[in-house]
Write a protein that binds this DNA or RNA. Structure first.
Length: 390
RNA sequence: GGGUAGGUUGAGCAGGUGGUGAGCUCCGCUGACUGUAGAUCAGCCGUCUUUCGACUGUGGGGGUUCGAUUCCCUCCCUGCCCA
């Protein structure tokens, strides 16, 4: 089956980093690229217009959540996920594999698939590799993910290995089950942070006829060093693989650089939008917490270097007020900003990989977002009253 | 003026009928969050102490008592009813 995707990429001269372009039935995506997460057919608090303005090129949706509500058949009857949510750009749907992990106490897993007790009403939901493909075909996403089995950091090797073997078997079954040539399907590498299992898994998935390779089972509690090591293992095995590579569930600004240098093309993460709703903003000077008392008196924009509507029109003090007052507008304004920051960062990375200056950009951003333990200079979040006093 | 119900740590409450009142929810302070069961969650939130712990605190004053939030006297304040 010819791939519905057309992906071209070239080495960028920094580690294994590459610059590419991914063409899908609903439009092209420049890589490296970040995909905002819209689990329930919406990126929380944002309209498709907001997403476009922020620079979004491709979105995520979720098999488990949409099958539960409103139901994939209803979405199919209503014209498919793109029409349903009024987003005409590319969409990638996750398979529900993450819910096998995150809803651990509401499900059981066996070799054939996973059984959930719906988190909404307890209804029993069965997800198999075939069913996950069927749901995603009904949703009509551009890229479907295979159902996989991921386990948390710290799981015993035997458990990691079992989940990996299951993932491989499920991957093969998903490929057998696919019936829509216009929908791409990505396989998912597992294997935890065990170098041997990671390598085995990468080889197994890469040997199958997927349209792209996803790296799963990371950013689930392991250390930064362990994640980097796992990426190195995967990158080594995939050295000559020309398909798009997608690191699932990552990440934070500093994580992007590490992964890109290991050849990752695509990212998704709830972090920018979730942190936004929780009052944590990413800026060109590091983190800004709306909840902190000092922000209440700060007349400055969130980020003077940012082009977004929030930074153009509103002060930190106003956002801090909205946050404390529980006003819903704050969710849109902070989400607009964090997504703009993230997508502009990704654009800046592509630019730097093209024109130079990548290392300087990486070092600056990594320094701003380093863990407190590594950073003796926590970001300052103080009002500039002195400047205003005449 | 008469009657009645009250006054608890920023706010709102719970509790306590002579022997441990620092418990809850807000507010406030500080964190966490990585393929979204998350507009969520955690810690702190009288004073001193890193901790352990110590001390203070039930409207004010006084009394009875070994001991009072509890019993007595008195004053202040608030709600409601009647005049």
């Amino acid at each position: 089956m010819p791939s519905p995707l057309n992906f071209t990429a070239r080495p960028a001269g920094i580690g294994r980093a590459r610059l590419g372009r991914l063409e899908t039935p609903h439009g092209a995506v420049d890589t490296p690229q970040f995909m905002p997460v819209g689990t329930q057919a919406t990126v929380k608090a944002l309209t498709p217009g907001d997403l476009r303005t922020a620079g979004t090129q491709i979105l995520l949706g979720n098999t488990y959540h949409l099958a539960l509500r409103p139901g994939e058949e209803r979405i199919r009857r209503l014209g498919g996920l793109h029409a349903f949510m009024a987003w005409d750009g590319p969409i990638l749907t996750d398979s529900g594999g993450y819910q096998v992990f995150s809803l651990g106490h509401l499900r059981t897993v066996d070799d054939d698939g996973a059984t959930f007790a719906s988190h909404l009403d307890g209804t029993i939901i069965r997800l198999t590799p075939e069913r996950a493909i069927e749901i995603q075909e009904a949703l009509g996403s551009d890229i479907a993910m295979v159902l996989d089995h991921l386990v948390g950091a710290g799981a015993p090797r035997s458990e990691v290995e079992l989940a990996m073997e299951r993932t491989h078997a499920w991957a093969a079954r998903a490929l057998e089950a696919r019936s829509r040539p216009e929908q791409a399907v990505f396989g998912i590498v597992q294997g935890g942070v065990d170098a041997e299992l990671r390598a085995v898994s990468t080889q197994a998935i890469a040997a199958m006829a997927f349209d792209g390779i996803a790296i799963g089972g990371l950013s689930v509690g392991e250390s930064k060093a362990a994640m980097a090591a796992a990426l190195e293992t995967v990158a080594g095995v995939l050295a000559d693989d020309v398909r798009p590579r997608y690191l699932m569930g990552v990440g934070s600004p500093e994580d992007f650089f590490v992964a890109i240098e290991h050849g990752v093309d695509l990212f998704d993460c709830v972090l920018p939008t979730r942190l936004a709703r929780h009052g944590l903003l990413w800026t060109s000077e590091g983190r800004l917490r709306l909840a902190n008392a000092a922000t209440l008196d700060d007349p400055r924009p969130v980020d003077a270097a940012c082009r977004c509507e929030t930074c153009r029109d509103y002060s930190r003090a106003y956002l801090a007020h909205l946050f404390r007052a529980g006003e819903l507008l704050v969710h849109r304004l902070t989400s607009v900003h964090n997504l703009t920051y993230t997508l502009d960062l990704m654009r800046a990375i592509r630019q730097a990989l093209t024109d130079g200056g990548y290392e300087a950009l990486r070092d600056r951003v990594t320094g701003q977002f380093a863990a407190p333990d590594d950073d003796p200079q926590p970001i300052r979040n103080e009002p500039i009253r002195d400047v205003l006093r005449d």
